[in-house]
């Protein structure tokens, strides 16, 4: 079996997001990057699948210059090599542009039997990229995958739907978008981290890829990007004895409709 390609996204870590409570503007400047949480499970799923089939895992990402750190992290999680479409436009690309880039890079990489993506990115969770790659490469797509198994040239997967599980099969090559529950994403050990820093990375520029006019223009427009802030009512009940305070508290909670 030929390579398993796993796509991942480098996103801003949500811990360090700052939201201005009056304007709801989001300050990303203090945020560090991280591999999208769900994609960590996807990388491990790809590693398990390729190990079972005796093939190699290859990591692929589309990101701007600061994605460099991500490659080391991704490679410490098992893939033998990484491909990186390096362009600043990744920072505000939508699913359409990202899928175009990744599909073009996958054609460039050449041989593959399986493409693994996370079900959605930790920042947008738009479910766009995986299915679009499948359409662009004209191969089957299986989404919401919670289990998968490869037997020869056939992929067997279990999809988790809202109220049921669905068993599906497809011929390879195919695209799967996997749920985090497909397998845990172990934290890489010391040796894996050291090896990750030494594995090869191939960098593509946009002009290296066979793209058509319009492939790099987004289909969606972001009208606004705002934080969500919860304001407290700051009601202080500190008058009277305990009984009066409790009565006042219960009355206040009733008034707010929480009791």
């Amino acid at each position: 079996m030929s390579n398993v390609i796993v796509c991942f996204k480098w996103v801003k870590a949500e811990d360090d997001l700052r939201i201005d409570s009056s304007t709801l503007a989001v300050d990303l400047s203090k945020s560090k990057g991280k591999i999208s949480d769900y994609d960590r499970n996807a990388i491990e799923a790809a590693r398990i699948a390729s190990e079972a089939a005796g093939s190699e895992t290859v990591a692929l990402t589309f990101g701007s210059a600061d994605t460099k750190t991500a490659l080391k992290d991704a490679l410490s999680r098992g893939p033998k090599q990484a491909f990186w479409v390096n362009d600043v436009s990744a920072e505000n690309a939508d699913g359409f542009v990202t899928a175009n880039m990744l599909a073009a890079a996958i054609r460039k990489i050449g041989s593959y039997s399986l493409i693994v993506c996370g079900e959605g990115a930790a920042d947008t969770y738009a479910h766009q990229v995986g299915p679009r790659i499948g359409a662009l490469l004209d191969i089957p797509v299986i989404s919401f995958v919670k289990e998968m198994r490869i037997d020869g040239n056939r992929l067997y997967a279990v999809r988790k739907l809202e109220d049921s599980l669905e068993q599906v099969e497809a011929d390879l090559p195919a695209v799967v978008t996997v749920l985090p529950e497909i397998n845990p994403a172990p934290i890489p050990g010391l040796k894996a981290v050291l090896e990750g820093g030494k594995k090869p990375v191939t960098e593509f520029k946009i002009q290296d890829l066979d793209l058509e006019d319009g492939d790099t223009s987004r289909k969606t427009d972001v009208v606004s990007f705002k934080g969500c802030s919860m304001s407290r009512k700051k009601i202080l009940i500190n008058e009277g004895d305990a009984k009066e305070r409790v009565t006042a508290l219960v009355a206040a909670l009733k008034k707010e409709g929480v009791l």
């Binding site: 934290i187 890489p188 050990g189 010391l190 040796k191 981290v193 050291l194 820093g197």
Partner: peptide, 28 residues
Amino acid sequence: VIACGIKVDGLIEENGRITGVKAGGDEM
């Protein structure tokens, strides 16, 4: 070489001499 996100679990000692560290399942 700086390896982050890794806890050192202990030292490796051979004949009274410290020769390395144990981290996760790995020895270095």
